[in-house]
């Protein structure tokens, strides 16, 4: 468990973050969201033990960042956006070195090496020089160095940036596996990714927490509306009737080939899955076939923008 209380950090006179307080439980996966300059990177660096905060405390299972720095850092696994790798080493040599650097005896690292390499899906590349690996494999190598010492908290800064779609899917699986054994904190600009992998979100703006909670909780707080597009099969009257029943507004219908109709509607309560469920139920009850229903903008994007705008 990681506990942050009243965390502040200043670069000279410039405030980066101030008064951050939150707790993240064991096996929880939390996403840190914020626009550029919101204080995400500073928070990540402090949590990783790279910076000493100007004020406040950070503890992991009771070990304080300032008074028990070495103990604190031994419980952290950190992957920055650009994985820190020695390109002249093989994957296996590098992970073995990182384990020892984190204070594990060589024999203990060697015993865990195969498991970690498999977890990071690097088995096929373990004897290859890191300099010869693709970006995706380098990211995985970065993950392996971050978890080799069985940390209580794993911090991943933009873990999927620069990965292709196949690698993203694989990385998602790696992150899910990590959360089985440790607390995971992820920072990402790709909000759909945060939504996909995290249990809870912390939204930063101007160096302060403006919201924290599950996606649904944040959506409820953000309020507002969501614009959705549906591909439907049925008469225009039936669709209109169903939309009105579901309290959808701004209804725009357009006929498509094959007897289909594309409907653009606005639902109340952005982010609440209930509104979409109600709409689908109303459509089905009115004899309308639902081929597809999607939000025009990502749901999390809408929540995020709403919260940061509200805070500003």
């Amino acid at each position: 468990m990681i506990t942050v209380e009243g965390l502040s950090h200043y670069y000279g006179d410039r405030r980066a973050v101030e008064g951050l307080s939150f707790t993240i439980q064991q096996n929880e996966c939390v996403g840190l969201l914020g626009l550029n300059g919101a204080g995400k990177s500073t928070t990540m660096k402090v949590l990783a033990g790279l910076l000493v905060p100007t004020g406040g405390t950070v503890t992991i299972d009771g070990a304080d960042l300032v008074s028990s720095g070495a103990q604190f850092r031994s419980r952290i696994g950190y992957l920055p956006e650009d994985p820190p790798l020695y390109k002249e080493m093989t994957v296996r040599e590098f992970v073995l070195y990182c384990g020892q650097l984190k204070g594990m005896p060589r024999a203990a690292v060697a015993a865990r090496l195969d498991e970690v390499i498999a977890l990071a899906q690097l088995t096929a590349r373990q004897h290859q020089l890191i300099g010869e690996l693709s970006h995706g494999y380098r990211k995985r190598c970065g993950i392996a160095q971050a978890i080799i010492h069985k940390p209580s908290v794993v911090i991943l800064d933009e873990p999927i940036s620069g990965l292709d779609p196949k690698q993203i899917v694989e990385m998602r699986q790696v992150i899910r596996n990590l959360a089985k054994d440790a607390t995971v904190i992820i920072s990402s600009h790709i909000l759909s990714e945060i939504s996909e992998t995290c249990d809870r979100l912390i939204v930063l703006n101007g160096g302060k927490i403006v919201a924290a909670g599950t996606e649904a909780e944040l959506a409820a707080r953000a309020g507002g509306s969501a614009r959705v597009t549906a591909l439907l099969r049925g008469s225009a009257e039936a669709i209109q009737r169903a939309c009105t029943t579901a309290r959808a507004t701004n209804i725009e219908l357009r006929e498509e080939a094959g007897g289909l109709t594309r409907a653009h509607v606005t639902l109340a309560s952005a982010g609440a899955e209930d509104a979409k469920e109600v709409l689908v139920a109303a459509l089905v009850n009115n004899g309308v076939g639902v081929r597809r229903i999607v939000e025009d903008d990502g749901e999390l994007e809408q929540i995020f923008l709403g919260l940061t705008k509200e805070a500003s």
Binding site: G49, R73, P84, L85, C98, L101
Partner: peptide, 9 residues
């Protein structure tokens, strides 16, 4: 790679 040293115990 300095991060490896700085984040180590």
């Amino acid at each position: 790679t300095i991060v490896l040293l700085e984040s180590s115990p």
